[in-house]
Deep mutational scan, measured.
Amino acid sequence: MLDDRARMEAAKKEKVEQILAEFQLQEEDLKKVMRRMQKEMDRGLRLETHEEASVKMLPTYVRSTPEGSEVGDFLSLDLGGTNFRVMLVKVGEGEEGQWSVKTKHQMYSIPEDAMTGTAEMLFDYISECISDFLDKHQMKHKKLPLGFTFSFPVRHEDIDKGILLNWTKGFKASGAEGNNVVGLLRDAIKRRGDFEMDVVAMVNDTVATMISCYYEDHQCEVGMIVGTGCNACYMEEMQNVELVEGDEGRMCVNTEWGAFGDSGELDEFLLEYDRLVDESSANPGQQLYEKLIGGKYMGELVRLVLLRLVDENLLFHGEASEQLRTRGAFETRFVSQVESDTGDRKQIYNILSTLGLRPSTTDCDIVRRACESVSTRAAHMCSAGLAGVINRMRESRSEDVMRITVGVDGSVYKLHPSFKERFHASVRRLTPSCEITFIESEEGSGRGAALVSAVACKKACMLGQ
């Protein structure tokens, strides 16, 4: 009897593995994704193909990295998701002549009506938060230079001027797309009239992360975010950046690689679950690469896999709870928690219980395998993109072996128990001629924006502006 049951459990697990095998990517698959990513990057950089390229390769006008001589107080704003952060950054000489960066910050959550109302409502709310922060720190009387981390696709015309191309991540505030974001912020500050600010720089969160990590390690020339969304930036040779005049030196390019796949480059790798996630998203047909990796989508992918296993009578005796059938019910943090389970399955059992399920031991094991399959594919897909960037940098610099540091931020990278190990191992397999160091950014977005502002202020002083 026991043997029969054991055989049935083994057969069930084997069927589960057959279904989950769809998520496995072979090294040849990853090399294919990497080569296609490089081709799209090239198209994004070139003037004649930029418009139709899915990977936009947006110039950021960040050319210099901090040298350690900029000092002063800077205000930093960070808008990239449902939370908005205001930070005071003091850049100065530390002990023994070292450079020191001290920060104080406060988080504000953005109400739904500000995210989806008008641009005026959104930026009025942001300036209200700045006003509140300055009151708390008794700094209303000071006109501070301000660095703005704005983590949406922007076409820069200068370091302090950028046109919002399109909202992502659930934002829909009308009247912002096609307009200068810094102008919208300046107008809102003017409307309030109770404080003055000098907006000197606007950067993407990947750029802010790279600059913040450069402060720790001067070989950091790539910034990457794996959180709600997924994106990367890197220092490109100016001669390859056709959208900006000049051939000397390097400029940081914001790849906006989340949109890779929007022209069909990933079609052969998309599964039924991916198509369902895409169809029910706020932007169907867009940001397809990001939807395979980002935390906004990972939990939902797992939920759809679990429903398939229920329908195949391989999980929960073929019956799903009402909660499990509800879109968004299986949160991405559950994926991390399930994979963090120590082996007694308590954590998995508790999560499934909150979803109205009474799982068996085998159910718990199957749910864990589903989570591992989805998150491992995410790590491997992400590795193909980064390997594409790094191999490109090595080739354009004609280096036999390139040493490089990548600064990384984002909740999936930082909080998932195995993502970074799987990701690092896969990147290294795909970049055999590179020695890569990964560092995690601390308060990256805010500190990085302030350091970019410090560079901009120093330049302005040198130019006598």
Rank of each mutant, 00 (worst) to 15 (best):
I366N: 03
I130Y: 08
L185F: 06
N283R: 10
V241F: 01
G97S: 09
S373P: 01
N391T: 07
Q138I: 07
N391K: 13
E339S: 01
T361V: 10
A10D: 14
L463Q: 07
M393I: 15
K420R: 06
G44L: 00
M238V: 01
E272A: 04
Y215G: 00
S174R: 06
E265V: 06
I126S: 03
S54L: 12
V367L: 05
C230F: 13
F148T: 07
K414W: 08
L463W: 10
K420A: 13
Q465G: 15
L2Q: 15
S69V: 15
G97A: 10
Q98S: 11
G318Y: 06
L2V: 05
N179E: 05
H50M: 14
G44R: 07
C457D: 12
E28W: 11
N240Q: 05
R46M: 13
V222D: 00
V367W: 01
C457I: 14
Q219H: 06
Y108E: 11
E27D: 03
S418L: 11
E272Y: 01
T342N: 03
M34C: 07
N231H: 00
D400G: 02
G178W: 05
N254M: 08
S375H: 01
N391S: 07
D158C: 11
C457Q: 04
L266M: 12
F74A: 00
L324A: 07
N313R: 09
A379E: 02
Q323V: 08
F330W: 12
S281V: 13
M37N: 00
R358S: 03
G264C: 12
G356Y: 03
V302C: 05
E279Y: 13
H317V: 12
L185W: 01
F133A: 01
K169N: 11
L270Y: 07
D217Y: 06
A450I: 13
E268M: 05
F152V: 11
N166E: 13
V62Y: 00
G446T: 15
S383M: 04
G356M: 08
G227R: 01
I390R: 00
L271C: 01
V226E: 02
K15R: 15
F269Y: 04
I126A: 13
K56N: 11
E237G: 02
K296T: 12
K346F: 10
D4R: 09
V181T: 15
T405I: 02
D113P: 15
E395F: 12
